[in-house]
């Protein structure tokens, strides 16, 4: 009894360390700058109304504003009108810290655009990976042809090359083709997943030959066998691969950092967050953590819903 209590104690301590940055990230995304500075307010902060200084400054009344407002405040001096207008601005610009942080996250930088880019890039990468890898995996697993061993040997050799390691020559080739700062640059190096080919080949080896022979007798071409017979049998393996691929590319920072420079329209979520950090000052901790939370949440949420599949997918590379 005490033994298992002790084990739980160790595991709980570990869990606290693991969760701490997540806790802090979400908590800061709720708090006002003052609360972050002083380290108070618990997890959610007190959520007192706060005034967005920048918003007030933007609405600082000039001569024309005062002249326009003269009707509303008839009989008052310019100075009084000015004060009244500032008060109005402050009233309009005050909000709860959580609202402030999350609206800033979406308005200071085109976060929605970044998220959309993330979806476009990860989506196209996965789609092309499947279109390229599946036929090759089928041929390597089920067709007899001269050079099959050599082709498979090439696959095994390429497994040794991490794409990040050859980023520099890839970048030079893409630059020579004039492709830097395009979606193509973000997608092209990942279109070939040697690991995907290897994985699907291992899976196809277990599919009985009879299934393929039957399809051939029905007069199916090899290519339609791939998509209409093999693909449906491979759904579980494909799903695991999808998770593996999407997680890797949604989170990837190194490659986008190299090929996308300056063009905000192409920023993926990590790049957007990085830029936010670059030009943020101290008062922007809250919005920055809100951005971070928004970027991290989709995968974590999906993970919590389909945990078993995710762990399967991510650790795929560990299966024999």
């Amino acid at each position: 009894m005490t033994r298992s209590l002790f084990k739980h104690l160790i595991l709980i301590l570990g869990a606290i360390v693991v969760i701490a940055p997540f806790y802090m990230m979400v908590s800061y995304s709720f708090k006002s700058p003052g609360e972050i500075d002083r380290g108070e307010g618990g997890f959610f902060g007190r959520q007192e109304m706060m005034i967005d200084e920048r918003c007030v400054k933007l609405r600082d009344p000039d001569r024309r504003d005062i002249a326009l407002a003269a009707d509303r405040f008839s009989g008052q001096s310019d100075d009084q009108i000015r004060q009244a207008l500032i008060q109005e601005a402050e009233a309009d610009c005050s909000m709860r810290p959580v609202v402030f942080n999350y609206t800033k996250a979406f308005t200071e930088a085109p976060l929605l655009r970044y998220l959309l880019n993330g979806v476009i890039v990860t989506g196209s990468i996965f789609l092309i990976q499947v279109i390229v890898a599946l036929p090759a995996a089928y041929a390597l697993a089920k067709l007899k042809f001269w050079g099959r061993e050599a082709a498979f040997g090439l696959v095994l050799f390429c497994l040794l090359i991490p794409v990040h390691a050859i980023a520099l020559p890839l970048y030079i080739l893409l630059a020579k083709l004039g492709l830097t700062n395009t979606y193509a640059a973000l997608v092209v190096p990942w279109t070939i997943s040697v690991f995907g080919i290897f994985l699907m080949r291992q899976f196809f080896m277990t599919v009985p030959d009879d299934l393929i022979d039957a399809a051939r007798m029905d007069g199916m071409q090899e290519l339609s066998i791939v998509w209409r017979v093999m693909l449906p049998t491979a759904i579980p393996a494909l799903l695991a691969f999808a998770i593996f691929s999407v997680v890797a590319h949604w989170n990837d920072y190194f490659w986008p950092r190299i090929v996308v420079t300056g063009n905000r329209d192409l920023f993926t979520p990590p790049l957007g967050l990085r830029e936010f950090k670059g030009d943020g000052d101290g008062s922007f901790f809250g919005p920055m953590m809100a951005t971070a939370t928004v970027i991290v949440t989709p995968l974590i949420f999906a993970f919590l819903i389909a945990q078993r599949r995710f762990i399967e997918g991510i650790t795929l590379s560990g299966m024999k």
């Binding site: 869990a15 989170n251 967050l273 971070a292 991290v296 995968l299 945990q307």
Partner: peptide, 30 residues
């Protein structure tokens, strides 16, 4: 352990899933 295995597993796996760049910034604040 008999109980709570899944919870620990889930928690310890969270950092693997999370965008490392975002978590780096969280760590920087910590």
């Amino acid at each position: 352990l008999g109980r709570f295995r899944e919870i620990y597993k889930t928690i310890y796996f969270l950092p693997v899933m999370a965008t490392l760049l975002a978590m780096s910034i969280a760590w920087e604040f910590m």
